[in-house]
């Protein structure tokens, strides 16, 4: 295993490339995305992400933690699921169930003159 002082990065076109290159060799970090099971038959999966990269080596550990859980809907995008895992937060990436489509009348302005029109959405 290489040590920090022994890694030399070449071919990078900016300073971030050097940091990335060293990190990639010594201790690569990744954003993890996954889905966790929900209590809803209509939306059985809630997608989540880490809000920053975590060590690649701890990915299996986080997966085990995620798969052991079940979430109750509703959830909102950005809502925190796990406060701290390897320095990252795990957050939901999709609002479930999705926000209701407003009826045409409620949407206001130009649509108001046609407020007799039925709302064009199937009731869930």
């Amino acid at each position: 295993m290489a040590r920090a002082g022994e890694v030399k990065v070449t071919g990078n076109r900016c300073s971030r490339g050097e940091t990335y290159g060293k990190e990639e060799v010594l201790a690569p970090r990744r954003i993890l995305t996954a889905v966790v099971p929900t209590d809803s038959p209509r939306f059985p999966c809630a997608p989540v992400r880490t809000d920053r990269a975590i060590g690649r080596a701890v990915v299996p550990q986080l997966l085990r933690e995620l798969y052991a859980r079940r979430v109750s809907l509703p959830v909102r995008q950005g809502q925190v699921f796990i406060e701290d895992f390897d320095g990252a937060r795990v957050v939901f990436t999709r609002t479930l169930p999705p926000d209701e489509i407003p009826s045409v009348g409620e949407a206001g302005t130009e649509a108001e003159r046609e407020d007799e029109i039925p709302r064009l959405q199937k009731a869930p």
Partner: peptide, 20 residues
């Protein structure tokens, strides 16, 4: 999903008729 919601939310508020 995050990218999509950046457009879905404004669409719901904009008075666009949405027929799902």
């Amino acid at each position: 999903p995050e990218y999509a919601e950046r457009f879905i939310r404004p669409a719901l508020e904009s008075g666009i008729e949405i027929c799902l």
